[in-house]
Design a binder for these strands. Structure first.
Lengths: 394, 394
DNA sequence: TACAACTGATAAATCGATTGTTCACTGGCA
DNA sequence: TGCCAGTGAACAATCGATTTATCAGTTGTA
């Protein structure tokens, strides 16, 4: 009625914990002591005297109710082929478990089985709709295998030695999926991968981390498609506002653009590209910088590619503020198709990457045992969504 | 080198699992059998003959190395005041643990302590930037208490009896934070709260779920502020595009609007409100509907309030498509301030709600033992961010 | 008639940490 | 000397499930 009894347990005064946190603080689940019976050592089963048990149903309860041993109950309920039991017995066990509402205790399973059923998902950009799609894919695939996702944060993990140790070394999770593209983290991937199966997603790095598998979409194909679309519309000079120049993601995306342009005997001019952050602010800053370069003159690209969706949103806003009308004065096309794109004014042309699949495959790879190396997803291929922000040149 | 040995274990042919999933599939961590020594029953400690142990460092290892019992090591490392040990001994234990790189096994701790260190976060709208902020707040607060968040999905949980049972009854998490506003789930909150400490966030429901605490921001104050802003700009007729009419969230938001309007002797006309989904699509549909009602005439509100940020984005897009210029023809203001708002063209005026704090408080409430009832967050208060989408009437 | 093989099932060890209880000492005091 | 209280620390039960041996019967077979 009044809710849950478990309050924060009385705090110990001295903490040996290296951090200043309240490690002991927390919840207690409902169970409580099973029977007040304290010591009754090895006496012959004292089935008498004990109440009907209050806590959750244990395997032992099922076994007892079904009149078999815990061992057999365990095997039958887990579908262990080594469980040689009469069909009738099997049925009885299963039925009893269902009747009693038996649910295995996860902690006990983990302890014994050395497997937690959890996958750590370590991100550093929880606000990006781009990353969310990946996260959803991962979650769904994990669920399919009865796994759950545990959320971690890169910066926190790096800042907090303890959290880091607990997550990585405390065997709290069976494996880790990390969002790459975070310099500091990228440098520690090796350590992590040595402790746990590790998959790095969606932001390839140059270093081939020992043991960590990389999973990412076909970036080159995506920007190639985008560029071909623009060329098809008659654009001959195309600019780019992207993320950090040296990041591998950017380099791959540039590669796609350059390739497509080259095929049409065009090139990506040095003066037409700007590099900054992978964010809306970055997009705005990029546009400001370009407009500044152009100085009001007409000597400018007729189309701009946004390094990602966020950058694209920032660009549209900034262009409007500079009184440049899209697509009349300038076409804009972005990498990543999110739900926002079609609601912008003008709606934003974009190429979609299979981020959902990246998440899916990351989990699958992890569960199958990661082997290091890179895994480029080319299926499904990038798809172009032509919208209002791109128009024919002229 | 080749990566992680643990592949998917050979699959059992027959599954007793009620679902069709591969419950046994998964990862195995590195440990492996500790020593090949099989049976050596109760013989006097055979410390000899065993290698130096390959797996992770256990408490027993620390104890042995420090020359004390496991019990004492445990107490000292946990800062248990009941640990009466010479200062020197304590120091030796702590030092040894550090030197060996001891990290407690989470599963063992959970099993013994009946506490997992995990909080389930069950959402049904992982793509909304609104909800993300809440999620970040929750994650941060959880981390502060050495808790981690486990991600769940409402629909999945409802659809998959097994997942539901594992998460709720399997003692996989110590408590649950649920995103309210999902009819089907709202109806089952009572069951869940009976099994686990439960907090429902950000979408109040009428039913006072027994045992579940509700935490949400001061919706009324938010829309009141928004409305006052518009009235201050000279608007006398204000419309609303919102979510489901009967949802409590909507009713509270309408209440704020009506209150503010009444204070200025104005009212919210029936014909000026539209109800639909809490999404950008909903916003678009709402505008389409209103425009249809107006039929091109000038008999319409001079300002519209968007029930939330997503709706606002959809509205701006739709208005542009109808050739209505914001804010010249119509002002628009939304509930929720997200990063997108300032990048839209025009930038979107909005009132910010303390979603981050909702997440924070939800976790804190859960850890402190939830007591049922409602918890309305009025600190920090809603803040108005005036931007380009609202202008003086005229 | 033995011996092996198979059936149906159980006992007990194990996973790693926590914690109630007990034990061996050492001084202090009568 | 004898007893009590306080220190410093160890024993052993426990949490709940998995799994390796092992066992008692029964059948088949050489």
């Amino acid at each position: 009625m009044t809710g849950w009894p478990p309050l924060l347990p009385a705090r110990h005064s001295g903490h040996m914990d290296s951090s200043g946190r309240q490690a002991t603080e927390g919840l207690r689940t409902a169970a409580g002591p099973r029977t007040a019976a304290g010591s009754q050592a090895a006496g012959p089963r004292s089935t008498a005297g004990a109440g009907p048990r209050s806590g959750p149903v244990r395997l032992a309860d099922v076994a007892e109710a079904a009149g078999v041993s815990r061992a057999l109950a365990s095997r039958v309920l887990n579908g262990d082929p080594a469980a040689r039991a009469a069909a009738e017995t099997k049925a009885r066990i299963v039925e009893t478990a269902a009747r009693l509402g038996y649910v295995p205790n996860v902690a006990a399973k983990s302890l014994r089985g050395n497997r937690t059923g959890l996958i750590g998902l370590v991100v550093h950009d929880l606000s990006s709709p781009i990353y969310l799609e990946l996260m959803r894919g991962a979650r769904e695939e994990a669920a399919r295998h009865s796994y759950f996702l545990v959320l971690g944060d890169v910066d926190e993990l790096l800042a907090d030695e303890d959290a880091y140790r607990i997550l990585i070394s405390g065997r709290r999770v069976d494996g880790i999926i990390m969002q790459g593209g975070h310099g500091e983290l990228d440098r520690r991937v090796g350590d992590i991968a040595r402790a746990l199966p590790t998959v790095v997603v969606n932001a390839p790095t140059d270093v081939e981390h020992e043991g960590a598998t990389q999973v990412y979409p076909d970036e080159v194909a995506a920007t190639r498609l985008l560029t071909e679309h623009l060329i098809g519309l008659g654009h001959r000079r195309i600019g780019l506002v992207s993320g950090p120049r040296q990041s591998m993601t950017n380099r791959l995306r540039e590669e796609g653009i350059v390739t497509a342009l080259a095929a049409a005997d065009l090139e990506l001019r040095e003066e037409d590209r700007v590099h900054g952050e992978w964010s809306a602010d970055g997009g705005r800053a990029g546009v400001d910088q370009l407009v500044d370069r152009w100085g009001g003159g007409a000597d400018r690209p007729s189309a701009l590619i946004a390094g990602n969706s966020l950058v694209g949103i920032g660009m549209l806003g900034a262009l409007a503020r500079h009184d440049l009308v899209v697509p009349r004065d300038l076409s804009v096309a972005a990498v990543h198709d999110t739900w926002i794109n079609e609601h912008l004014a003008p709606s934003l042309t974009a190429v979609s990457l299979p981020l959902h699949e990246v998440g899916t495959v990351a989990v699958r790879t992890l569960l199958a045992g990661s082997h290091g190396g890179r895994h480029i997803l080319s299926d499904p291929p990038p798809v172009l969504h032509g919208r209002g922000s791109t128009g024919a040149v002229g």
